[in-house]
Design a protein around this nucleic acid. Sequence first.
DNA 1: CGAATAGTGTCTCTCAGACAATATTGC
DNA 2: GCAATATTGTCTGAGAGACACTATTCG
Lengths: 264, 264
Amino acid sequence: MSSRRREVPEDERAWLRTYDPTGFAPFGVTVDVVLLTVRPDEAGTGPGRFSVLLVERDTHPFRGDLALPGGFVQPAEDLDAAAVRRLEQELRVRPGDHPGVHVEQLGAFGRPERDPRMRVVSVPYLVFAPDLPAPVPGGRTRWVGWVPVEDVDAGRLAFDHDQVLAAGLERARAKLEYTPLAAAFCPDEFTVADLRKVYEAVWGTALDPRNFHRKVTGTPGFLVPVGRPAPVGPGGGRPAALFRRGPATTLHPAMLRAARGRPT
Amino acid sequence: MSSRRREVPEDERAWLRTYDPTGFAPFGVTVDVVLLTVRPDEAGTGPGRFSVLLVERDTHPFRGDLALPGGFVQPAEDLDAAAVRRLEQELRVRPGDHPGVHVEQLGAFGRPERDPRMRVVSVPYLVFAPDLPAPVPGGRTRWVGWVPVEDVDAGRLAFDHDQVLAAGLERARAKLEYTPLAAAFCPDEFTVADLRKVYEAVWGTALDPRNFHRKVTGTPGFLVPVGRPAPVGPGGGRPAALFRRGPATTLHPAMLRAARGRPT
DNA sequence: CGAATAGTGTCTCTCAGACAATATTGC
DNA sequence: GCAATATTGTCTGAGAGACACTATTCG
């Protein structure tokens, strides 16, 4: 993570002592968190609801609107650290404790007019988490909660968070294809059916349980069997085997959601 | 691109009139350009050299070191616009003129100590360009030139540009798999062999010309035949057909560089 | 003609998708 | 037993990789 040690030449040190940083245009820098999860269906039988954590803003600008949780980066704070801090504030979860939680930077959004207060560049972070306890509103929010992504009205989020969310969803859907990150939406131990419901919820498509089973158990490094069965569900049926996340970071071959051989 | 029109409530307008933006920590924001191309081999027979445009800095900090071209974003300038401006300055090429040139944001780099002057967040852009005329040094650089990526000494670039370049290379290699962007490294009209040399240079692997030909010509939307042959090369041989970029934005099925069915 | 490069045909193996069949539970 | 879910097996077709073979040019 840290960059190389560098011998700073004396003339550069001298130059730096006289350098005036106020000559450059000052920007605000924020982090926003696109925290995604898959929450069980009401009945518990369906594929689950792909949901995002939103807050209702209690301060200007966009007071009263829904928004992604976020905030300004501190002067000496790393971007990733700011995102994790915001995550802890909103959810009382720190990624270090939950090894399943996945955090990944999503890019930078910096349209000049995106914040009415001043020039602000936002660096959103994409987070995959298993179904977690209900969040509690923090100091500056009226309300916090999970919203199924298909219930988020286009154009109703504060700032440019519609675009940020859209970018996060697209990235999440793509990541499930070639990484084992679907398991980041599952608890520590999970069944193949749990994992399949994640794919179905995120992609919005039904998958054949039999082919899915053969596929994921046959992909090296994806799943590690626990050797113990899960408790039987409410509808009865043969108990499923439990698995944990395997060591793989990419999937070979990938899980393909789409369109093999379709025209453009 | 532009966000929704929003009715700004009167109380927010009033609040905004009294808002003091100097309360937040000021950051500098820069763009850096990871401009990649594939330049012909010395002999013209090999796969070509995958190269990046680097500048030698003529100002502090890191004076005398190699770096990616970049600079501060102007107060009212969009991030993408700043990257394009920097590109034009360095290469006298504007992406609009060259429809082949591909520009894509690569993320945000913001370690607190990455710039000794002040807190700076950099937003690098990845650019794919065909082999272009030699660039000319601008005002603040001693030297500009193409450097084959394998000749870039690890740890020798200014700031954290090693990490930025590494991220750009990884992204470029991945993009060639599932998008038709390899053609962005080719001139307007090109042969299948030209395209294959791009893949070989970027991935650093040899590809079977016969399977490659069948693959790319059979992928819908990838290539559009011009209906005219290219001039015969120096070594003789049957003249190759010319193609242009097709309308596809993603490839189905993807070009796979790697490892089908290999263990993790 | 021979060398060189372009392009096609064929074979095999892997893998995705469809779906039959078997296994194991609760009722 | 019956319903429900889990897991395995079998078949088919698409496509990747190996590589023989044909096509077209230059010298």
